[in-house]
Amino acid sequence: MIVGEQKPLAEIKGMLEDYRKVLVLGCGTCVTVCFAGGTKEVGILASSLRMATQLDGNAKEMDEETVQRQCEWEYIDPLEERLGDYDAILSLGCGIGVQALVERFPKMRVLPGLNTTFLGLPSEQGVWEERCQACGECILHLTAGICPIARCSKQLLNGPCGGSQDGKCEIDPELACVWQLIYERMSEFGMLDKLMEILPPKDWSTSRDGGPRRIVREDLRLPEDYQEGESSP
């Protein structure tokens, strides 16, 4: 899932300085699951902002709403008729949600209430960890199903580096050395000979380095003369 984290209240307050009536808009998918931007967090943040702005003598009106998914038109289109009332939307969606709102409602001011942090999972309750960098060319079959692109601090393809000690990464004693994990798993499966193969320089063109990415599936596109209400081809 996409993992996000709420921005500090002071930063959010600063963003809202010029707006009086704000819609705090949550998203019911990834950021709900990671307790950053669902209905509950929308409620808490909206109350905090109401109180904080009132204490400042500059009370703002904060309405609350959560849509199922901020990143799909069908879930955000119904908001349109209500938006005239607001000076801004404070989105608790990920960066994709914020931009979907901007694209759909170009006249609205949309502000990010979250920092979108990574693609990951909850490794235990209250702890989320990065697992994927969306590099566009998966190599998990070469590294025993553990990703060094997302999880090695130096993105080594032929690790571990000299800083691996007691299974930990040199940059953070809380962080597992992913090459230690890869080594152990390959060792367990009797695949250490594979670890002796030198992985060549990665093709980063499928990653963000190749420019913003886009996928076109002609088999799924609707014909140009397609009319709403017709069944899809």
Partner: peptide, 24 residues
């Protein structure tokens, strides 16, 4: 060399490269 991670240095907010590793 791979290089020490930038978090140890005097520009810890820098972007690192690691386009290739020391082996490559």
């Amino acid at each position: 060399l791979s290089g020490d991670h930038q978090s140890f240095g005097n520009h810890p907010t820098a972007k690192n490269v690691h386009d290739v590793d020391s082996m490559q």
